[in-house]
């Protein structure tokens, strides 16, 4: 192959341009740490990356939602524990006042007052909040669920069940509506709402109506059991939420592995390739320099 002077310079120019393009491309990859900058570099890989990122973003958003659900569950459990505690205390006070032989009126009056205090404390716990959300309002979570109107506690919430998404249309409850907790919905048959029961119990003890008081004490015990059962439910919800968080975190991990495989640059390979290209480029410049420094026939013609 005969290479003319112009062809020689043309080859050198083309090779220098190509080498600079290759080095520039590798520099962008090395500085970004990413194997693919544009889909055209690896369309299939870019599609895998895009899907992995979407899945990871979806999982991350759900983890955040579920973690918020776990926090609500924990706070609801604390509120329910407090409510159960006041119900238990009311039961114990009533039992003490109705079963001890020769309980004086003073003792009964004290017990009745304590039961009313427990009922007031329970009302406070019933209006527990997480941030600015009421825990036991159902879907009316910005409305104070329990209010005392003319000595009677009324429920302003609804029966809505707050839930957190698990994906594919599945949800898990993250709170329990107050009407269910305090039996406004009649879930424990034959017993009124917890506040009314405690009010009636205090009145019965106050007036010395021991049979009614004993009967109401049994009702308070039943309500205590009901709240304890609901605490169990909340615990179950929390376990489901945490299990799903683990699954979603595993999905995120897998997505990150896919991204590491598909998107992250093989640094060792890229540096090796860069070094090879750089060496070739240096060699090219060296060859050009040497050829240019060689005398041609014109230099030797006298």
């Amino acid at each position: 192959m005969r290479i003319g002077t112009n062809a020689f310079f043309r080859h050198i120019t083309q090779t220098v341009n190509q080498s600079e393009t290759d080095l520039g491309r590798l520099t962008v990859k090395l500085s970004s740490g990413k194997r693919i900058q544009y889909a055209s570099e690896d369309p299939l890989g870019s599609q895998i990356i895009s899907r992995a990122k979407t899945t990871a973003a979806s999982a991350q958003a759900r983890v955040r939602t579920l973690q918020q659900g776990v926090r609500l569950c924990l706070q609801t459990d604390v509120a329910l524990a407090s409510i159960a505690g006041w119900l238990q205390e009311a039961t114990e006070l009533a039992s003490s006042a109705t079963q001890s032989i020769g309980a004086t009126e003073a003792v009964r009056q004290t017990a009745a007052a304590s039961i009313r205090s427990a009922r007031d404390a329970m009302l406070q716990a019933a209006n527990s909040m997480s941030g600015d959300r009421y825990l036991l309002s159902g879907y009316q979570d910005r409305t104070e669920p329990f209010q005392e109107v003319a000595g009677v506690v009324v429920y302003n919430g609804d029966s809505g069940q707050l839930t957190a998404p698990l994906g594919s249309g599945r949800t898990v409850p993250i709170a329990i509506a107050g009407d269910r907790v305090f039996n406004f919905d009649g879930g424990v048959p034959g017993i009124g709402n917890a506040f009314q029961v405690l009010d009636d119990l205090a009145t019965a003890i106050e007036t010395g109506d021991i049979p009614t008081a004993r009967n109401l004490t049994d009702n308070v015990s039943a309500l205590f059991s009901h709240v304890t059962t609901l605490r169990g439910s909340i615990g179950t919800y929390q376990v489901r939420l945490e299990a799903n968080i683990s699954v979603l975190e595993e999905i995120q991990l897998r997505c990150n592995e896919v991204l590491a495989d598909e998107e992250s640059l093989d640094l060792a390979g890229a540096i090796t390739e860069y070094t090879a290209k750089e060496t070739a480029y240096t060699a090219l410049l060296s060859v050009f320099s040497r050829v240019m420094s060689m005398a041609n026939l014109f230099d030797l013609t006298r």
């Binding site: 055209s40 690896d42 870019s46 599609q47 979407t54």
Partner: peptide
């Protein structure tokens, strides 16, 4: 899904670019 459709479009465009180049 919308995201999949978009990533499919970007990938298809990538194939066209690679092919044209």
């Amino acid at each position: 899904s919308l995201m999949t459709e978009h990533s499919d479009y970007v990938a298809t465009l990538g194939v066209q670019v690679a092919s044209a180049e």
